[in-house]
Design a protein around this nucleic acid. Sequence first.
DNA 1: GGGGCCCATCAGGAACGCTGATGGGGCGTG
DNA 2: CACGCCCCATCAGCGTTCCTGATGGGCCCC
Lengths: 292, 292
Amino acid sequence: MLDGMDPHLLRTYVTVTRLASFSAAARELGYTQSAVSQHIAALEQDLGTPLLTRRPVAPTRAGERLLEHAAPLLLRLDAARAEVAAVAGAADGRLVLAAAPTALTPRTLGALPPSGVTLRVLPRADVPEAVATGAARLGLVDGLAAPSDPLRLTGAAPLRTRGAGEEPVHVLLPAGHPLAGRPGLRLDDLADARWLDAPGAGLPLAQLRAVHGTGAFRPSLRYEGTDVRTLTALAGAGHGLALLPASAARAPGTVAVPLTAPRVVHRTELLHTAALSGPAAAFVARLDVTRS
Amino acid sequence: MLDGMDPHLLRTYVTVTRLASFSAAARELGYTQSAVSQHIAALEQDLGTPLLTRRPVAPTRAGERLLEHAAPLLLRLDAARAEVAAVAGAADGRLVLAAAPTALTPRTLGALPPSGVTLRVLPRADVPEAVATGAARLGLVDGLAAPSDPLRLTGAAPLRTRGAGEEPVHVLLPAGHPLAGRPGLRLDDLADARWLDAPGAGLPLAQLRAVHGTGAFRPSLRYEGTDVRTLTALAGAGHGLALLPASAARAPGTVAVPLTAPRVVHRTELLHTAALSGPAAAFVARLDVTRS
DNA sequence: GGGGCCCATCAGGAACGCTGATGGGGCGTG
DNA sequence: CACGCCCCATCAGCGTTCCTGATGGGCCCC
């Protein structure tokens, strides 16, 4: 047993920690409780250290380290299988495209073929995984970046990226907002504002901090869906400000004002694996044609 | 066999492809040839597609995809094991520091504790792996980046980074070079120059392209060692130009001229895993104290 | 044509990994 | 306080897996 860390031991381990229960993990995985117990014991013996406290069932410090690796490992295992399958299987006719909501800009939408596409809108954080595991053939993600800088994707999965367009970033204000008449806004003007916290639908405010370097943003309402229209409606109703790409920042009762400082753009990037063919390749080519 | 891709099957696969031989892989891995053959057969059956051509033994296209995932997967498996071991085992007294040659700037050297350190100089590309697998506790890598931009590390392994200093980039010219008298040089001035190609010791010219966006560099002599002094001597002997951090760009018979355009700096970053303690933590703290 | 090397296949035995049963420990309940 | 319940650990037993050693076919070089 030189190579003790079988994937299914890891899978058992993450399931046990997630459910905080050996028995529940066994039920979910289709094992007996005994098997799960033996899995954990095997892992602990292999690594030479306890990974879980029993009663309550919780990861030890060593277990936490293992957890940080286990999920990406399992994901990448799936990714490898999916990519091999993509090469092996003949290209399926349909193109499945996973996209973050605000990544659907006019440009990317315009490049879609007229038929044969399945569009799957997901929270931004789930798009890379969908592409890596083959659930989607292509992915569109977006975010804030300095002009012509690539996005900084936290990739556990190894995906290739290519730029798919940039556009200005607008701040969406309710029509009556005191700053609504401005031609442009600096982020400093909005230091005291309350922002809609919409990790699924909006742009991640944390990225602004990375680019801008300043303190935290004060969140108001948190919206967990992926629907941009809901987000703009919330902004219109005065629940907080929203940061959106220019093309998405329009809704009745709101005013969109360009963000002028810091100088960031809304950047869209296409995600794909190494193997591209058929309609996916056509879509990519169409995107490149419309390159600015 | 729902979860067919055992790590040791993958290990067998990469070994077979590396050696282009089932039998040789079997010898290296301590298996019989029969076992290796069965491993490959199991993988191919699990993935539903041939992964190798026999005679000659070479990866198929599907196999190439698998290979791209297999190495990082195995690396990360080792990384997980190493990190768990680091938490479990008591902190060993010695601090092992892996560093790229040009990452050893006065600042990083100054932060080293006076004793108890093992310094391991490696080619730049090997440093992240050494840290991930626990061969070294900390790593120092360097590269070219826009000022205050982080390095773009191609991380198969999940390492944390923190800045460890920036300094100007100099071009090292032989003393008699026509441009040696200039106060500063633009990269465009050097479009026709021949560069020393030293992936181990020098700064990777490819990174300049990433920042600058222009064409290829014309390499002259290629130097595969990790010794900076040899590199500067080669530059002094007129074998080509070298790009070095200011603190390393001095050698008899050479002139170091600052690179003024594009605006890039030599940036050093510290690599570490999540678990830091003992002398490693002390070193990090010392680095932070001298932060500019 | 023969010998050597290679990979595939097969049979057999050891080792592994699962199940089902049993036992001890903690916790809420009557 | 005793009982019952739920949880995890351990054990024996059995089916499967996985490795070895032997054998065979294909290719190349001599």
